[in-house]
């Protein structure tokens, strides 16, 4: 396995707006996501973080540029090759995307039933164990429409983790969760990553808390991505918009060393 899990090369992505003008989301973006590490993608609302994840998954196509997964060019692949590629990924969608005609249990069990040959007894064991981890025990017979927003997120998380994929993409895993649950989830990430060794890409607004997990941080702003080798490195950046970002998201705590005594 190469040590780069995902790589974007000169990726352009724009959308047509209703009035015919172009809205540029990604402008010649380059970045690499190291394998087995955790990368956090941060940036304001509507900057294109979810779009970036969809590009990785092949749910959207870039206008120009190339996307590599584990060293292979995966730009524009489709059909069987795309299905093959997706077996490497586990995904938590921003809106959880639970199957609303299936119960919580069936949702979480679906990837196991469809993609593994394990017995029903074993599947049940595994699903209940991960529901317990996410404090969802006792809710397994409910349908998604009967869950709170945070519970949906957790069910989506449980479903995404079932197959122990190589690469995990999380779109705002902790939005809508209380602080205790958030910390709990981050511990879960750290634990599972240690066990499974997956590459994690986390899109999050939960800054600075999520930085405790991060090996690498990418900040997306106005179509440009700035890559930082560590969360600390962000604070040393001289770029004005990064300084602004640090000031507004991390506030005084992280700035304190700059203040004259």
């Amino acid at each position: 396995m190469s040590d780069i899990a995902i790589e974007f090369k000169d990726i352009d992505k724009a959308f047509m707006k209703g009035d015919g003008s172009r809205q540029v989301i990604l402008d010649r973006v380059n970045f690499a996501i190291p394998a087995g590490k955790t990368t956090v993608i941060a940036g304001g609302s509507g900057q294109g973080k979810s779009v970036t994840l969809k590009l990785i998954l092949g749910l959207m196509q870039p206008d120009a540029g190339q996307i590599f997964v584990a060293g292979n060019d995966c730009t524009g692949i489709r059909g069987r090759a795309l299905a093959e590629l997706r077996t490497r990924f586990g995904v938590l969608f921003q809106g959880a995307a639970l199957f609303d005609s299936l119960t919580v249990f069936e949702n979480v069990a679906l990837p196991l039933r469809e993609r593994t040959k394990g017995s029903e007894v074993k599947i049940k064991e595994q699903v209940l164990a991960s529901l317990e981890q996410l404090e969802l025990l006792g809710h397994e017979e409910k349908f998604p429409a009967q869950l709170s927003g945070g519970m949906k997120k957790r069910v989506g998380l449980a479903r995404a983790l079932q197959l122990k994929p190589e690469i995990m993409l999380f779109d705002e895993p902790t939005t809508g969760l209380d602080p205790v649950m958030t910390t709990e989830i981050y511990h879960l990430f750290a634990r599972t990553q240690k066990q499974v060794g997956f590459t994690a890409v986390i899109v999050s607004h939960d800054i600075p808390k999520v930085f405790n997990l991060a090996d690498q941080v990418i900040v997306l702003n106005n179509g440009v991505m700035d890559v930082f080798a560590s969360p600390e490195a962000i604070q040393w950046s001289e770029k004005p918009h990064i300084k602004e970002f640090v000031k507004t998201t991390m506030g005084e705590i992280y700035q304190s060393h700059l203040v004259e005594p």
């Binding site: 749910l59 093959e84 997706r86 969608f93 679906l110 469809e114």
Partner: peptide
């Protein structure tokens, strides 16, 4: 509601 995308992404 992205359920079909989710199916695709699970390679189902």
């Amino acid at each position: 509601s992205e359920q079909l995308d989710a199916l695709d992404c699970m390679a189902v």
